[in-house]
Structures are given as structure tokens and as C-alpha cells.
């Protein structure tokens, strides 16, 4: 079979490219929503953890946050996805994509939390003291002085987390979610040719990873220019 025939068979015939396209749409959607959920929840967890480390307050919330982060980071993503789908939402009829949002978002939050916490802890104690000495409360100091600097420091790590998450969503097929990987696999099962559809999916992932990478680098540069 020539390359041309191969491409025709795998992508054009019966509109098979649609498997990839709608799969890609889901993959990106899951990634973006999970990133947003992850960042929001991750911030909250990081705030609780670092407040406890800095001031000794929030004992119980810190215990819960610590447990949460340990469990999420200590178990496989696929298993977490299966548990959310087959255990937590077992008796509820809920769209699979929502399940994916929640599972990947909850997972990402644990990693984001640790990244941001590391960023907060890396800021010099003098910055906290300067804020306090002017009369800012702990939370205000965090908001106006610590987090802006912490986030700037950990931006590469956060960007990396987003890239990992994009690739991680490829396990969504385990709950029969039609993502990019599964789309390619469906084509493979129909055409009995694995090479072209799988490599195509890989190329698409790589393309978006490179775009994310570029965006993060650009953001980093913009933030740096405000701080010589």
C-alpha cells in the first residue's frame, strides 16, 4: 500500500479524521478545565500548607491537605480516574467528560499545590516581615507580595505540569472517553493499520506540547521584564 493510499484509508475514507478531531477537542477541553480546577484548588491547598508551615495555624485543614496530596501523588492517575468513574459516580448518571474534568482536576491540584508551596517557601522571610511591618495582614502579605513573586519563580514548573497533564489525559480512554489517543486507536481497529493513525496522534500531542511550551516561555519573559 502506498503512503497515499494509507493516508486515504486512515483519515479520508468514511471521514475517519473526525475521530482525531473530536478526540483532540475533548483532550484539549479536559486539559484546560483540569488546569483551571487544578490551579484554583492547588492554590487553596498550597495556602493552607504554607500558612501552617509559616505560622503553625490551620492544623486540621493542613492535615487534610497533606493527606490529600500524599494519596493523589502516591497512586496512579488511571486508577484515580477509574475510582472517580466507577466508585464515586457509580450510581450517578453523569457525562463522562465531567468525570474526566473532576478526576484530572483533582489530580493536577495535588501537583500544583506542591509546586506553589515550594515557590512560597522559597521567598525570603524578610518579604513577609516587610509586609507585616507596614501593617499588612498575613493574607494580604501573601496576596500582594509573596504570591506574585512565588508564581514567577515556579512558572516553568507550572508550565511543565500543564504539559504533563495534556499527555496524561490520554488515559481517558479507560472510561471510554473519546480523546485523541482513543480516536487514533479506533481508526487503527477499523483499518488494521497502526502506524499512521498512532504516529499522527503522537505528532498532534507533540505539536500542542510545543505550543504550550512556547506560551509559558513568553509569559515568563513578560514577567521577567518587570523585574530586572
Amino acid at each position: 500500500m502506498s503512503i497515499k493510499e494509507n493516508l486515504y484509508l486512515n483519515f479520508i475514507k468514511d471521514d475517519r479524521y473526525m475521530y482525531l478531531l473530536s478526540g483532540l477537542k475533548n483532550t484539549l477541553l479536559i486539559t484546560i478545565v483540569a488546569v483551571v480546577v487544578g490551579i484554583l484548588l492547588g492554590f487553596l491547598l498550597a495556602y493552607i500548607r504554607s500558612t501552617h508551615d509559616k505560622t503553625g495555624k490551620l492544623k486540621i485543614p493542613n492535615l487534610i491537605a497533606h493527606l490529600y496530596i500524599t494519596v493523589i501523588r502516591g497512586t496512579p492517575m488511571v486508577l484515580q480516574l477509574l475510582i472517580v468513574y466507577f466508585v464515586i459516580f457509580a450510581s450517578v448518571n453523569i457525562p463522562k467528560i465531567i468525570v474526566a474534568f473532576i478526576a484530572f482536576g483533582l489530580n493536577s491540584a495535588a501537583y500544583v499545590a506542591e509546586i506553589i508551596r515550594a515557590g512560597i517557601m522559597s521567598i525570603d522571610e524578610g518579604q513577609f516581615e516587610a509586609g507585616a511591618s507596614l501593617g499588612f495582614s498575613y493574607t494580604q502579605t501573601m496576596l500582594y507580595f509573596i504570591l506574585p513573586q512565588a508564581i514567577k519563580n515556579v512558572l516553568p514548573a507550572l508550565g511543565n505540569e500543564m504539559i504533563v497533564l495534556l499527555k496524561e489525559t490520554s488515559v481517558a480512554g479507560y472510561i471510554a472517553m473519546d480523546d485523541l489517543t482513543r480516536g487514533a486507536d479506533i481508526i487503527r481497529s477499523q483499518t488494521y493499520s497502526a502506524f499512521v493513525p498512532l504516529l499522527m496522534a503522537a505528532a498532534i500531542y507533540l505539536f500542542f506540547v510545543l505550543i504550550f511550551d512556547r506560551l509559558v516561555k513568553k509569559l515568563e519573559r513578560n514577567l521577567k521584564s518587570s523585574d530586572h
Binding site: D124, G126, Q127, E129, A130, F145, P148, K152, S226, D227
Partner: peptide
């Protein structure tokens, strides 16, 4: 002693 200005 260390000034502690906000660098950002």
C-alpha cells in the same frame, strides 16, 4: 538590615 524592598 537587608532592606526587604518588594522586588516585583
Amino acid at each position: 538590615q537587608q532592606f526587604n524592598l518588594f522586588p516585583h
